[in-house]
Amino acid sequence: MDTDLPHGYGQARKRGLSSQQLCIAVGIDIFKNPYAVVCGHGKPSTRRIRDAFGGHIAKGALVVHERECAHSGVIRDAGAVSKSYPRPGIP
């Protein structure tokens, strides 16, 4: 967790995709090589995901993701195939 962000006195730390938490986009290619990039704080936007993964996804590649709406833009731009699964604990 990123501890550099200021917290008010008596303010509880938020859970989930809050602006208090660092967002790290992670991917694994077909050869099992990991790719990770810090893309700001909080829930990722389509622009931040494009900046993180743009140019790293080959045309026609299969992209498996957890139904985050921000992923659709980079998948569409790359001409990739999308397969999504729900995040654990979320219907």
Rank of each mutant, 00 (worst) to 15 (best):
1 M>W: 05
84 S>C: 04
4 D>R: 14
21 Q>V: 06
23 C>Q: 08
1 M>S: 09
72 S>F: 04
32 K>I: 05
83 K>A: 00
81 V>P: 00
37 V>D: 12
76 R>V: 11
28 I>V: 14
57 I>T: 04
58 A>I: 14
43 K>F: 02
11 Q>M: 03
1 M>H: 14
18 S>Y: 07
83 K>S: 09
11 Q>I: 06
27 G>Q: 07
40 G>K: 07
57 I>L: 12
64 V>H: 01
89 G>I: 01
13 R>M: 07
5 L>A: 12
72 S>R: 04
75 I>T: 12
60 G>V: 03
81 V>T: 05
85 Y>N: 09
85 Y>V: 06
21 Q>W: 08
15 R>K: 15
47 R>N: 14
26 V>I: 14
89 G>T: 12
1 M>G: 10
16 G>T: 05
70 A>E: 00
65 H>T: 03
7 H>Q: 14
69 C>T: 14
79 G>L: 02
55 G>I: 05
9 Y>K: 14
35 Y>Q: 06
64 V>L: 09
23 C>H: 11
1 M>P: 13
38 V>F: 11
44 P>V: 01
68 E>L: 11
46 T>L: 13
88 P>R: 11
69 C>E: 15
17 L>V: 03
41 H>C: 07
60 G>I: 08
37 V>G: 06
50 R>D: 13
60 G>L: 01
26 V>C: 01
46 T>Q: 15
50 R>M: 09
51 D>S: 13
73 G>A: 15
52 A>V: 11
59 K>L: 10
58 A>Q: 13
40 G>Y: 12
84 S>P: 08
70 A>Y: 07
8 G>A: 08
30 I>D: 15
81 V>G: 08
63 V>T: 06
38 V>N: 07
78 A>P: 05
35 Y>E: 08
32 K>W: 09
5 L>H: 15
45 S>F: 12
29 D>C: 09
22 L>V: 11
39 C>A: 15
55 G>W: 00
74 V>Y: 10
8 G>S: 07
82 S>V: 08
45 S>W: 09
34 P>I: 05
13 R>L: 12
2 D>Q: 06
56 H>T: 13
2 D>F: 09
16 G>W: 07
52 A>I: 04
54 G>T: 07
28 I>A: 10
27 G>I: 00
74 V>E: 02
25 A>T: 06
20 Q>T: 11
48 R>G: 07
